[in-house]
Write a protein that binds this DNA or RNA. Structure first.
Lengths: 193, 193, 193, 193
DNA sequence: TATGAATGAGCGTTCATTCAT
DNA sequence: CATGAATGAACGCTCATTCAT
């Protein structure tokens, strides 16, 4: 399987760096190849085309978030703690990989409609897990029984996303992780039972 | 002043239509010119370059939101009602101009970093007015005294933005305006005193 | 109409020269543009793509042959004289435009299947006129009544084509026009009544 | 000698199939290798480069025609019969190997000038044998004493070639072999004493 | 002998902007 | 003011060939 070969990950990581440093539209395949230390043509042994690189970047990195969320779902804790862990995890991963934060919050959004759709498919998995937390929270009576799950999900994701984007746009000047408790409080206020 | 001449607005409106119909990357200057019924070169008598058209589109349209928000601020009503009006206004304007909704929520976000920064400057005026509402709400004791205004603003804007984007991505299949009360309730739960 | 503008013919002629000098696969669009004294992009104001240039070259030049053949058909002379004029005209045009001879006999044949089919459509018009001469020749009893027209056409065109190709491959060392009477004699022997 | 090893012929035959099925420009070395059941690199143990494969294809296959023509020359029959056998043989071989017909009449002609010259060298051997038949025919008084041998050869080869190419282009819909007598008649009319 | 992963040079086409009319 | 023909820089991808194993 190509995805397990070392060069696959090498190119993915090179793409994140190249995009973060040069911007989406200036991250030419040749720059990614150079950053990865391989020839231009080698890229095409591992990826179908440039779009495939970008979707793969998103898929591979999103897998970290999704995996962590699954672990949180398996823990025997209440919904409030779960959401705190989710927010904190989200902030923490991006706080520790500044390049990735720039890429997911700013650069990858410049992609065309076609690529956006493919990225959204990947994102859906994460949002579906969030829905599971919310549904379960209502069943357990941790959350407001009248909660509109879609709206709640949009509020939670919208808040997290906007918070991170603002942080990235402010050149990551302040500590993102410190915001977790307050963001969590705001969100819980909105949806708790 | 160029902005008052009829062709100026004519080109702005043509740009919105051209972008909504063709997508950001397919909205070439020549297409905008054709839609506006002028020659390509004429565009450059009213705008410095393509980026200038796009920023102007955003500035002119955002002015509607900002103006409405100012009116809301002048009304003698409590913070909860103000925020309801803000949300409802936001949803209503975009619900009634589908082209504009597509352009602001999807297409314009594909622009490069440079243009994004200029768009954010325009957006700032709107967000600053939101901050005024929030500060005033705390003073009046309508809102939680310990509220972190920046976080609250990010939550409110993030929630609204994500809600609208989801609606656009779902091809505007459901009624956006009907969501106002629920979105308002969620937000007020989060921040009220 | 684009085909009447001076730059159209200018580019066509530049293409013939560029292809004759560099060979089919080395005649890049930029070389053709340079030879024509225009910018690369200008090419695309007059031609849809590179293939369109090449088909147009063939169409425009073939028009000379076809036009001459029509004139010959209108003359009130016997079939033998008509065929002599056709052969002589074919030889004469290519003898006087060495570049064109190289392009039609050697270079354009290297084109891919798709282009070949389009070129054949153009060629068909010429061959159809030849068929008219042959049919008419049989009716007039100038030619063998049992003649298979398709075979006769293939023999005539094949002979002319092979003769010219050999001449081009021998670097146009001898006088092509002088061969007309002998080629004509051979062909008439084969098909006359 | 490499040419006697089984893989040599294996690759040659794979090349014919790959070219006939995919077209000249789509017959990459890797496709030929796959068709032959060897690794890409193995090709280069038997052939200097891709051009060498193609010339070898032509040489090996042309050898069939040349060999048959030598046999015909050894037979004690008149010139007319010799030419009939030559035409019939030519038609028959290609009629029975459709792949080869496509390759020699259409695909291999898309090769560059350099390859064309090398192919012509191989072809020359065949044409030289035809010249022998013609010279001998004049000596025997089977053919017109004033015959220009070069022209006659060009007519014969041009006619045969054009006939076969038309047949291939018409997707080999009709029976090529049936055409032999008529083609022979046409040619003999042209050159007989 | 045989393999196949890696290489890297090469090119058609688009489109924002200019400027002579 | 208005036009639109002309410009030319910029880039993703293919594939023949090599060479370490």
């Amino acid at each position: 399987m190509k995805r397990d070969k070392p060069k696959y990950k090498q190119i993915i990581d090179a793409a994140v760096i190249a995009i973060a440093q040069n911007g989406y539209h200036q991250a030419q395949v040749s720059k990614i190849a150079k950053e990865a230390g391989v020839a231009d043509g080698t890229i095409y042994l591992y990826f179908k085309n440039k779009e495939d690189i970008l979707v793969s970047v998103f898929r591979e990195k999103m897998a970290i978030f999704t995996h962590n969320l699954r672990v949180i779902l398996e823990e025997d804790i209440d919904t409030s703690k779960r959401l705190f862990k989710m927010i904190d995890n989200h902030f923490r991963v991006l706080h520790e990989d500044r390049h990735l934060a720039i890429v997911t919050q700013l650069e990858l959004r410049q992609s065309g409609k076609k690529l956006r759709l493919r990225i959204n498919e990947v994102l859906k998995e994460y949002l579906d897990l969030l829905d599971v937390i919310l549904k379960d929270g209502i069943e357990r009576n941790d959350l407001d029984q009248t909660l509109d799950i879609r709206l709640a999900r949009q509020m939670i994701f919208g808040t997290i996303d906007e918070t991170i984007t603002s942080w990235v746009m402010n050149e990551q000047k302040y500590d993102l992780i410190e915001l977790s408790p307050n963001v969590h409080k705001l969100i819980m206020n909105a949806i708790k039972a």
